[in-house]
Design a binder for these strands. Structure first.
Lengths: 146, 146
DNA sequence: TGTAAACTCTATACTTGGTATAGAGTCAAG
DNA sequence: CTTGACTCTATACCAAGTATAGAGTTTACA
């Protein structure tokens, strides 16, 4: 099958498929006489596997590692598990970060409930004063913000 | 003050400061006779403000908008508030996404508790079977995963 | 005064995970 | 036989910086 059909079947764009080939996630396929890429069913399966991993937010390098491990059925799956574990950890951290950010934003936002002029805007004042505090202070409390 | 001192005071790298100048977040400063950038205290304050906004995960374009709004005290602060509101929304979505991802990952991970061989690894089998389901099915349930 | 270290300058390339183009060649239908 | 759909390579672009080379400048110390 040619790349357009493969793209339609996987839901990936043609450029993305070529990009994965360049990144060695997907083996370079056979070519037709006119130099068109010609894919097997295996390529389709591989791409769906990759797509699934990307949906889990794995990086291309991580996916490459998993694919290499998977290539030999006698390998230990240890580093696949390690990769997933690290991922779970990373995402947990990111969620915590975003929640903290959310809290700060909501608190800042509450400083200006109505549309006012810039000079009266509590949101801008907050942004300013936090910045100033970070400039002059070295105590722990403001370090937390800065 | 020269760029090195400004970098030390703000905690930003020299390259980042020059990068912000190129992106028009920070006005191009005066130059010394030997073409070194020479910054005022205002530049320091501006950079701290920018840093604060970046810590809130605002994009450079958003910060530019806020800075432009802030530049005229008689302006309405409406779009500052809109920017923050949109941000809060974006982060909420992102947190929801990450939580869903986390759930999927944990569930997949539970399929292989011990280090086994690749061919026996439940994690790999799960990744495979989800990918295959997405390949052949068009019903709503598997769409949710794919 | 000499010189070596530390600083600064511009310009360019690299990162991640793609997306978007130009310009050329190929294939199928009418 | 030509038009439109498809494919090819190569290159540039996105965010938000980071890293480098190679050149010039300033500062500290002997």
């Amino acid at each position: 099958m040619k790349i357009g059909l493969l793209a339609a079947k996987t839901g990936l764009s043609i450029q993305t498929i070529r990009f994965y080939e360049r990144k060695s996630l997907l083996a370079a396929p056979e070519r037709t006489a006119s130099n068109y890429r010609s894919y097997s069913e295996d390529a389709l399966k591989q791409l769906l596997f990759i797509k699934q991993c990307r949906a889990l937010d794995m990086t291309i390098e991580e996916i490459k590692l998993v694919l290499e491990t998977r290539a030999n059925p006698e390998n230990s799956c240890e580093n696949v598990n390690t990769t997933i574990d690290k991922h779970v950890d990373d995402i947990e951290h990111r969620i915590a970060e975003l929640k903290a950010l959310q809290g700060t934003l909501v608190s800042i936002r509450s400083a200006c409930d109505h549309n006012k002029k810039v000079k009266e805007c509590g949101v801008l004042h907050q942004l300013d004063s936090i910045a100033e505090a970070c400039s002059s202070n070295t105590d722990n409390e403001s370090q937390l913000i800065c």
